[in-house]
C-alpha cells in the first residue's frame, strides 16, 4: 500500500495528468483479462473444506463468473477482493446456492463441500444452507425479538427438543457472537431496535445457531462504523477456530487484518490467489498489483 503516494496524486493536478502515461498498465480496469486466463498462485490447500472447479455463473446472457477454481481451507479465513461488479458476491452465493432464488441465474461446474457435490440433485438445499451459513452486507434481522431471531434457524431445523435446550443454544450463539452481555436483559425486545453493529452480530449469532461449518460474509462491515467494524473483525478471528470463513470485503486493510488467504477477482475472472501477506506485499499479476496499489478499482 502506498497511501501517501495516492494522496499526492489527487492533490496535484499536473501529476494526475502525467501519472497514467508513466505507469501505462498492460491491463485496464475496465477490460477483462485475456480469454483463457489462468489463475495465478496456488488455488489448492492441504485440507479443503469446500472446493470449486471450473465454476461459471450466467445471469441470462451475462457471463458473471468465468471458470473459477478455488479451494476453501478448513479453519481458514479467505478474503475475496476486487472492484465492484467483479462477481465476488455472485461467487459467494454459489457456495450455499443462494443463487437458486434468482430466476435468471445459471451455475455450471462443480462445487463440493467435504467432497460432496452441492449441486447434486439428491442434495437438500435446506441441509446445505444449515452447513454453509451466510451474513449479509446490510444487517437484516427479522422483525422479531432478539431471542426469536436466533431461535429461528434451530426451530426450522428441529434442532432442539425442549425450551430449555433452545434457550441454552440461543445463549451459546449470542455468547459466541460476543453479543450476550449487551442483550441478555432484553431478549424479548425486537432485534431491529439494536444498533447497526449489534444487529450484524445478531445476524452472525443467528447463522452460528444452526452450527454451520462454513460462514459466508458479504461485506459484513460496510454498513458499520469503525468501532463496530473492529468488534466484528475480532469476532471473525475467534470464529476461525471452529469454522471456515469466506469474507468479501472492499477494505484491503480489513482483508489484510482478518484473512490468511486472499483471492482477487476481476470482471468475472479469478486473477490471483495466495497467502494474504504475499498478495499485499508482492502480487504477481499486473491487475492485482494495479488494484492493491489503488491504481484502479
Amino acid at each position: 500500500m502506498n497511501q501517501p503516494n495516492t494522496l499526492t496524486r489527487i492533490e496535484d493536478p499536473a501529476m494526475a495528468e502525467i501519472q497514467p502515461q508513466q505507469a501505462q498498465p498492460t491491463f485496464s480496469a475496465t477490460e477483462p483479462a485475456p480469454e483463457g486466463h489462468r489463475t495465478v498462485g496456488k488455488i489448492t490447500v492441504d485440507n479443503p473444506k469446500m472446493s470449486a472447479r471450473d465454476v461459471n455463473v450466467y445471469y441470462g446472457e451475462k457471463h458473471a463468473i468465468k471458470h473459477v477454481e478455488l479451494d476453501i481451507g478448513t479453519n481458514e479465513v479467505i478474503a475475496l477482493i476486487g472492484p465492484s461488479g467483479c462477481g465476488k458476491s455472485t461467487f459467494l452465493r454459489t457456495l450455499n446456492r443462494m443463487n437458486d432464488t434468482i430466476d435468471i441465474c445459471r451455475v455450471t461446474g462443480n462445487i463440493s463441500l467435504d467432497g460432496q457435490d452441492i449441486y447434486d440433485r439428491r442434495l437438500d438445499v435446506v441441509q446445505l444452507r444449515a452447513r454453509v451459513g451466510m451474513v449479509f452486507q446490510k444487517p437484516n434481522p427479522f422483525p422479531k425479538s432478539i431471542f426469536d431471531n436466533v431461535a429461528y434457524g434451530p426451530k426450522i431445523h428441529g434442532m432442539t427438543s425442549s425450551r430449555a435446550e433452545l434457550e441454552d443454544l440461543v445463549r451459546w450463539s449470542l455468547e459466541k457472537a460476543g453479543l450476550w452481555h449487551e442483550v441478555k436483559d432484553r431478549l424479548e425486545q425486537p432485534g431491529t431496535g439494536l444498533s447497526g453493529g449489534q444487529q450484524q452480530r445478531l445476524c452472525i449469532a443467528r447463522a452460528i445457531a444452526v452450527s454451520p461449518e462454513v460462514i459466508l460474509m458479504d461485506e459484513p462491515c460496510s454498513a458499520l462504523d469503525p468501532i463496530a467494524t473492529a468488534k466484528i473483525e475480532e469476532l471473525i478471528d475467534e470464529l476461525r477456530e471452529n469454522y471456515s470463513i469466506v469474507i468479501v470485503t472492499h477494505s484491503m486493510q480489513q482483508a489484510a487484518r482478518v484473512s490468511q488467504r486472499t483471492a482477487y477477482f476481476h470482471l468475472g475472472d479469478l486473477i490471483e490467489v495466495g497467502e494474504t501477506e504475499q498478495i499485499f506485499t508482492n502480487p504477481e499479476h499486473k491487475l492485482t498489483e494495479g488494484y492493491i496499489t489503488g491504481r484502479f478499482g
Binding site: M98, M134, F136, N140, F142, Y152, H157
Partner: peptide
Amino acid sequence: AMRDGSYALGA
C-alpha cells in the same frame, strides 16, 4: 434482504 436472511438459514 429479509427473505434472503431466512433462505440463508435453510428455510
